Computed example of a mutant assay.
Amino acid sequence: MNIAESSLRLLVDKWLAPTLSTPVRVTQFSRTRSNQGRYVFVEVLRAAGPVGLFFFRHDNGRWCVFPPETERLAMRAYGRAA
């Protein structure tokens, strides 16, 4: 999947399926506290009520419905020279 295939516009179309009578709107956008990653909350008004999703921008430029994984501390063991 290339970056164009995971653009925010295409993902909104895929997940929320907006139409002329039910347009989408961005209701929140900011950065996450943990890694300063960008996110937006997009919602569409349906007959049953509003439906919305968070979209997260990953380091590679792609937008996804799941947040990027945070870096974890790691401990490594190295063999000792003889």
Rank of each mutant, 00 (worst) to 15 (best):
N2L: 07
I3H: 04
I3S: 13
A4C: 07
A4S: 13
E5C: 01
E5W: 04
S6G: 07
S7D: 12
S7F: 05
S7K: 00
S7N: 06
S7Q: 04
R9W: 04
L10E: 14
L10N: 14
V12L: 01
D13G: 07
K14M: 05
K14R: 14
K14S: 08
W15I: 00
W15A: 00
A17C: 10
P18Q: 02
P18K: 01
T19R: 00
T19S: 14
T19L: 01
L20E: 14
S21Y: 03
S21I: 07
S21Q: 13
T22N: 14
T22E: 15
P23Q: 00
V24H: 01
R25L: 04
R25G: 03
Q28G: 03
F29H: 13
F29W: 12
F29E: 15
F29V: 07
S30A: 13
S30Y: 01
S30G: 15
S30D: 15
S30W: 01
R31S: 08
R31T: 14
T32D: 09
R33S: 10
R33K: 11
Q36Y: 11
Q36C: 01
G37V: 09
G37W: 07
G37I: 01
R38I: 05
R38H: 14
Y39M: 05
Y39V: 01
V40L: 06
V40G: 03
F41N: 03
F41H: 13
F41Y: 15
F41T: 01
F41A: 01
V42Q: 07
E43K: 00
E43S: 11
V44Q: 12
L45P: 04
L45D: 14
L45W: 08
R46I: 05
R46Q: 14
A47Q: 14
A47K: 13
A47E: 15
A48E: 15
G49S: 00
G49P: 09
P50H: 02
P50L: 02
P50D: 09
P50I: 07
P50S: 12
V51K: 05
V51F: 04
G52M: 08
G52L: 06
G52F: 09
L53Y: 12
L53D: 00
F54M: 10
F54I: 10
F55V: 02
F55L: 10
F56T: 01
R57W: 05
R57P: 00
H58F: 10
R62K: 15
W63K: 00
W63F: 03
C64R: 14
V65K: 06
V65S: 09
V65R: 10
V65A: 06
F66P: 07
F66L: 02
F66K: 03
P67Y: 03
P67L: 01
E69G: 09
T70A: 09
R72P: 02
R72S: 11
R72T: 13
L73E: 11
L73Y: 11
A74F: 08
A74Y: 06
M75G: 07
M75R: 10
A77F: 15
Y78I: 08
Y78N: 10
G79A: 10
G79M: 03
R80L: 12
R80G: 09
A81D: 14
A81E: 14
A82V: 11
